[in-house]
Amino acid sequence: MTEALLRAEDLVMHYPTKAGGRPGRRGTAVKAVDGVSLAVQPGEVFGLVGESGCGKSTLGRLLLRIEAPTAGRVFFEGQDLGGFDRGRLKRFRRQAQIIYQDPYSALNPRQRVGRIIAEPLEIHGIGTATERQQRVAELLQVVGLRPGQAVRYPHEFSGGQRQRIVIARALALNPRLILADEPVSALDVSIQAQVINLLEELKGRFGLTYIFISHDLSVVEHISDRVAVMYLGRLVELAEREVFYQRPLHPYAQALLSAAPVPDPDAPRQRQILKGDVPSPINPPSGCTFHPRCPHQMPVCVEERPGLRELAPGHWVACHLY
């Protein structure tokens, strides 16, 4: 196996709640990420799925060291990000970029698009003003816009075009890794497809690696090579795409897949409807955090937290059933 581009070891992120901030008081914490290990291989699309509040965005922020974890380590090309000084962290940022869901709030409305895309180049002191201008023109073309549009403001663009601008900015520094956090969720389906195609095209053209975070299982299936499912701050399953979609093993992953509406009126419906809501990450259930909603609950599930185990080559599941 080649060396992982990005590797996480037992990542934990606990956000103290209000009461916890007071001295002398035993604090509670939101366990947003609670012991996650994973490895992203160069050139792959690593899909990360889960419902709101499962910690997938927080995990993404830890992987790119936008936040420092409470515990655990992240390695980029084998080097521990936690040991990086400011200069090395800045160099790491050139390699790893992020695209957020909302292209409306990700762009400064008072700046022209050319300026927005050139900003990373300025921050890292790359090129002369003319060279940067040329690079902006090139980037606009790469994402399917016209170089002449550099003088326009974000409000003059549609949602899909704005996401293209966000992507152009993320590409400005020639990164190796892009973390895309729900990059198409705010877009209408016809535009969503345009942006997905663009992301796939850019991956091939520039040899990118993606971590693709989404709640949309069909989008993740379309774009990912491997899929990881998160529930209440933990990975519950990790597998190659085909394996996962044909035979998910974790009961939560099964329920999630069966709950996704299929755009086919004749599709067989054997929907598993989960009872109840996702419990609070402040006080998650004991043992396996999914046990209160699990149709296969056993006594051991209440007692003991199941570890992520490799049941078949490359297929990892955290469940006492197996």
């Binding site: 016809s190 497809a193 299982l217």
Partner: peptide, 17 residues
């Protein structure tokens, strides 16, 4: 609209937006 849609279980090549 239908051609833009990625579908579970039916991985098509490129989407047709």
């Amino acid at each position: 609209l239908f051609q833009s849609l990625p579908q579970i279980g039916g991985r098509q090549g490129r989407l047709k937006p």
